[in-house]
Write a protein that binds this DNA or RNA. Structure first.
Lengths: 297, 297
DNA sequence: CGATCTTACGGGATTCGTAAACATA
DNA sequence: TATGTTTACGAATCCCGTAAGATCG
């Protein structure tokens, strides 16, 4: 009673070749086996599909009517299978990722280009969000992986990679710190600072470092976006503290970047996924290439 | 390597119920068998479709992407099967028939109404043509059955029914013959006749009858269409000879119909199909109902 | 009589169900 | 521990190929 794709393929082959023998050889099948398949199909459908004698094979009117319908159905089905196989071997698919704006503007675009060059049919769905939101998106499975900051140990989250991003001081070319190789915590406590808003992972690290160091920063400005912070620094409003990878400070001739001489100025970063969830093959290769960048070798 | 509809149904059932056990009972299958089906499907596609542990079953991103595609393909395929079954049991389909204009305007419309009442989803493809063309259409399989006139014995044609149509004289109410019950061959030879054109089956019979009777008709007019012949008769141009079933003469108060007292004035009619061709089930029931009318009992 | 479809039958692969093992909340 | 999935295995079924039979041109 169950319709079988093989029987449909047999029907189409016989209809196209007009012969059981030729169709059988096309299907790499013995001719009697083909007879049985056609008969079975005719029985399940309850209608004679071919008028045949030992000399000629011809579609019945019903068969002629059914042929294009079955051809289309079979074609669609096979196309879905091809699509599915492409998803399965990672030659197509969509990488769904949430990441911090810093990465969304720095490593991620370059990596996407790299992946697209290797896998032309790869698609991307990128969300940029602050650390807490990234984690939520992963937990709710709105994305498959997240590149986020902050330490997290959650039973529902797998950490595929944990590392840290060096924080650096960003200052105008004419600033007093520009003549030094490095700056210290007390240096930073002595000048006005432009710090990103509460709730960002960078701000959490900076606040923690000052607290444990026993001193308080002088906050000149609390912008939400890094781009704003950079503009404020360029305008001489103060010094800001950003991840070394921040795209915003590159190719800015009026700015200087100096490492901070303090162990606490490391922003932890993590590549995460939901525990127990299989990543799509395309995403697995994406992760592999991302890890190659984050931790080469 | 062959995609199986059963596995697709299994995939959809598990995706919808979120449980192997519930899906198995819906599919009337043991639960282990379902596990095997899903694993087989995952192997043929080459991708994990469900993330599952002993407690939870959830679609992978790839599975979620594939689900609607496979649902649609399966639905289409099953719909085609339903259509095919409907064709197979005669509850739908198209009756392709060619017939003489006489029948196309008389028995056929009534029969079509009758069949449509019995089989609402029946469709019709009707060609009206003179006898020779009807036979050609059947031979070329442009129609499945033909209702035609004339005797034919052809190896390629099966005669499903053979009968004859009485020919009658049609004349104006004021004509001299109107006072008689019947007319004879010599009567017809004595008055101007309106005869349908050469090539029609009626004309062939009339010509044959006059020839064998040893007399010649006086032809006043040779219209192609019966409707024209009737109009000519109504105008007093002469008497015409038509099949008794001709629709054109019914409900014409100014005309009279008289039987012709001569055995040769019978037009043979035949219901034919191409030899070796199976008729669609809907057409078989149509034929049965037609025969019931042509030869009741 | 020759080419082609159909039927018959034995072997092999597929698939099912039962039972036991395994895993996780 | 209890629920639910996976593994193992024997039995039934399905399906193919070979060989013999039937049929039409």
């Amino acid at each position: 009673m169950d319709l079988n794709l093989r029987d449909i393929r047999a029907f189409i082959a016989v209809a196209q070749t007009g012969s059981f023998t030729r169709a059988a050889s096309r299907l790499h099948l013995s001719q009697p086996a083909l007879t049985v398949q056609i008969r079975r199909l005719e029985e399940t459908v309850g209608v004679r599909l071919f008028d045949r004698n030992s000399r000629n094979v011809a579609l019945t009117p019903t068969g002629r009517e059914l042929l294009p319908l079955l051809q289309k159905s079979l074609h669609d089905m096979e196309h879905v299978l091809i699509d599915a196989r492409a998803l399965g071997d990672g030659s197509s698919g969509t990488v769904r990722i949430a990441c911090l704006p810093t990465f969304a503007a720095s490593v991620l675009p370059e990596l996407i280009q790299q992946v697209k060059a290797a896998v032309p049919r790869a698609g991307f769905h990128v969300r940029d969000a602050v650390a807490g939101v990234v984690e939520t998106l992963v937990r709710h499975e709105e994305v498959d992986i997240g590149l986020t900051g902050g330490e997290l140990s959650d039973a529902e989250i797998d950490v595929l990679y944990a590392g840290a991003d060096q924080l650096v001081a960003v200052l105008p070319a004419g600033h007093a710190f520009a003549r030094r190789k490095r700056v210290s915590l007390t240096d930073l406590a002595s000048v006005p600072l432009v710090l990103t808003a509460q709730g960002t992972s960078v701000r959490a690290v900076v606040d923690g470092a000052f607290t444990s160091g026993g001193c308080a920063p002088e906050i000149a400005c609390e912008p939400t976006y890094m781009m704003t912070a950079v503009a404020m620094v360029r305008a001489g409003l103060g010094v800001t503290i950003l991840p070394a990878s921040a795209r915003e400070v590159r190719a800015e001739p009026e700015l200087r970047v100096r490492p901070i001489d303090h162990d606490a100025f490391l922003r932890p970063i993590a590549l995460i996924k939901k525990r127990g969830r299989t990543l799509p093959p395309i995403t697995q290769t994406f992760v592999a290439m991302l890890l190659e960048r984050l931790a080469p070798g």
